[in-house]
């Protein structure tokens, strides 16, 4: 099982984001570096949820926002290592929708359940496989506080 290493500050930030947008889903990108057996997350970048028609149970990040997030990550010497979103009043397990719309092979997808406005369980799933045809989610261990907080924040939109 791979391990997602993430600073306490980033872990807290993505969970707080889910509480702020409740009862809607939040979303954003995780920026970091490969650490052999999983990603080492050093920063997060909030994104707007463009699924305003169904924001309580859907999320989508505008590609142009991803272009800007990736540009900023590159400037910081980081990579897009994964994404996070929340499941308001729903378990922190990937859904068929999450799976169908997951295309960043090798990246981590972090889901936080937000129950009645409070962040509950946070899980991470690595999108494993080499193609769309054999992709699959593998649950990862989350190792919080194994990474020093990263000072630089993305300039991307705060959602």
């Amino acid at each position: 099982m791979s391990t997602l290493r993430i600073s306490q500050a980033v872990y807290d930030a993505i969970r707080a984001h889910g509480e702020e947008t409740y009862p809607h889903e939040c979303c954003g990108a995780l920026l970091g570096r490969s650490s052999g057996n999983g990603w080492r997350i050093e920063a997060s970048a909030r994104a707007g949820n463009t699924r305003t028609d169904s924001a309580h149970n859907r999320y989508q990040i505008a590609p142009v926002e991803l272009v800007r997030i990736e540009r900023e990550a590159r400037r910081q010497g980081l990579e897009i290592a994964g994404f996070y979103h929340s499941h308001p009043d729903h378990p922190a397990q990937w859904s068929p929708t999450d799976f169908a719309e997951a295309h960043w092979l090798g990246c981590s997808y972090v889901i936080t359940a937000v129950a009645q406005g409070k962040a509950a369980v946070t899980n991470s799933f690595l999108l494993a496989g080499t193609t769309e045809e054999d992709k699959h989610f593998q649950q990862e261990t989350i190792d919080v506080a194994a990474v020093e907080p990263f000072a630089v924040q993305s300039e991307s939109k705060k959602g």
Binding site: E25, Q60, P63, H87, P88, S95
Partner: peptide, 15 residues
Amino acid sequence: IPSIAGGSATHGERK
């Protein structure tokens, strides 16, 4: 840029 989307919904219905 591969697209990024998802959510807790299944086929548009709240679970």
